[in-house]
């Protein structure tokens, strides 16, 4: 049982705020009790706990006018590379924060920290996705300011994170051209739940059999409303389109 949020998940993950004191937050969970045969009508959504916490995070983001984006992809599609470029190229434009999700190590958080951005690393251990509970705790240590942009880099996995709402405003799926253009129909859930698809590593298009038209066609079969931006984090090609998308998504501050 986690006293801070009153929630009660079985997650066992750790959070480290890079560049500060290392704060480990572990929880494990145990309970027992004892006491003729009854049928209990439970009727409970299995993901309810996560969904409630996600709504709580969403409320927090709305209240502080924070744009929270959940970046999802297979391992190695370029999530961290995209963030490194973005945080460098857009430095000073918005207060940026990053939450990194990986099974092990703080390698990605260290890369983000090197750009001068406030970052927290969540290590999920054996866990294959971030959940709303982990985000809640990372936020407590991070204390983002109002009108900020928060990037949440999920664990590299095109399947599991699809099911877990973190409270984000938008989900951005990244696919790189080396992965094959049929990924959207092989792993449809992620494309179904995302609003933007970034196609990365377009500098490698001459070397790999990958059709931009095909990948979009497949992705639109799963999600007709999906938007696309083609980029290369190596050459910088197309990144301006992503920056524009981002700027357009930042909620306008209400001036009284």
């Amino acid at each position: 049982m986690c006293a801070t949020c009153g929630c009660d998940t079985n997650a066992s993950s750790s959070i480290q705020h890079i560049g500060e004191h290392d704060h480990l937050h572990d929880h494990a969970h145990n309970h027992s009790h004892s006491h003729g045969k009854t049928i209990v009508a439970v009727e409970k959504d299995i993901l309810q706990e996560n969904n409630l916490l996600a709504q709580r995070n969403r409320g927090y983001f709305d209240a502080k006018n924070i744009l929270a984006l959940n970046l999802v992809s297979s391992p190695g599609s370029g999530k961290t590379s995209l963030l490194e470029r973005t945080l460098t190229d857009m430095k000073g434009e918005f207060p940026f924060y990053v939450i990194e999700g990986d099974q092990q190590t703080t390698r990605d958080a260290d890369r983000i920290y090197a750009t001068g951005t406030k970052v927290a690393q969540i290590n999920t251990g054996k866990g294959c996705h971030l959940d709303a509970h982990m985000i809640l705790h990372a936020l407590q240590g991070m204390k983002p300011v109002e009108n900020a942009v928060l990037f949440i880099e999920n664990v590299g996995n095109l399947v599991c994170p699809a099911m877990f709402d973190l409270g984000e405003k938008e989900r951005v799926v990244i696919i790189s051209v080396t992965e094959g253009d049929d990924k959207p129909i092989k792993y449809p859930d992620m494309f179904h739940t995302s609003t933007l698809c970034i196609i990365n590593k377009v500098d490698l298009l001459p070397y790999v059999p990958f059709s931009l038209d095909k990948v979009k066609e497949y992705a639109r079969q799963v999600n007709p409303a999906l938007e696309f931006i083609e980029v290369s984090c190596t050459s910088g090609e197309g990144l301006s389109g992503w920056y524009q998308w981002l700027k357009a998504k930042v909620p306008v501050t209400e001036t009284v």
């Binding site: 009660d8 998940t9 079985n10 309970h31 439970v42 409970k44 993901l47 706990e49 294959c128 599991c160």
Partner: peptide, 17 residues
């Protein structure tokens, strides 16, 4: 293996009930 998280959530619900 998000199925494990699903199972853990079920256990949690069943435990509480």
């Amino acid at each position: 293996m998000h199925e494990l998280s699903i199972v853990m959530s079920i256990l949690d619900i069943a435990e509480k009930e």
